[in-house]
Amino acid sequence: MIAAMRFQLSAYARSTRALPPVLALALLLGIVFSSPLGGTPAEARSGALTAIGDLAALYFPICAWAARGLLDTEPDAQRHIGVVAIGRWRAMACGFAAAFAFNVCLALIAGAVPLVEAARSGVRTSQLLPAMALLPLSALAATALGALAGRAIIHSPGRSILVLLGIYVADLLLGLGPLRVVTVPMIEWMGAAGRGPSAFTGALPWFALRTLAWAVLATALYARLRRTRA
């Protein structure tokens, strides 16, 4: 499995497809951290939490885009060869795991900036670490969305991008209403981060559980659809 993941990551890194999501993340980090987190340590801690909450929501479509790009780097015929070489389920799991591994790298880059900025303002890193769990969880849910929008499931590139962005926008809009429980709670965690450290930390397990559940369901749907698709 490791060899198959390395093959896909290597192909993605060598192609130019990996660059646009990285540049988009750099742009996002530049915008989010264009002003200081805060003057006092308390303000800086609050500012860092807000930044982490915003980042985990705003880099979601970037991670989904990256996952889709990584999976689509493999030509259809190569995907068929991979299925024959290691089996349908393992081939699918390797592609998904490779996409998630790349998105975890994006999460590490995204998370490093608020940690460094907060440390410079005198905030202890340990105070921010629980909130950092949102970044890989968001990346996992985004990987599942990217996989669902990949060419193995949706052959038309235009329709695929529409589905990816449509689900992201629908998730944000549903997050404002009574159906918010079925969403990745991005709107809610951004709001909680803005209300302060105690509100954010108290709601974090609920946010994490819902994000994880969304990711598991989306991954199960992806696996179900891949079962019959070449």
Partner: peptide, 22 residues
């Protein structure tokens, strides 16, 4: 397959090396 997927960013040696490892 009928048409080999040549549109991949590897030399033949690197590609076959990956396939041997897989």
């Amino acid at each position: 397959p009928e048409r080999f997927p040549a549109d991949q960013p590897f030399t033949a040696r690197a590609y076959l090396g990956h396939m041997a490892a897989v």
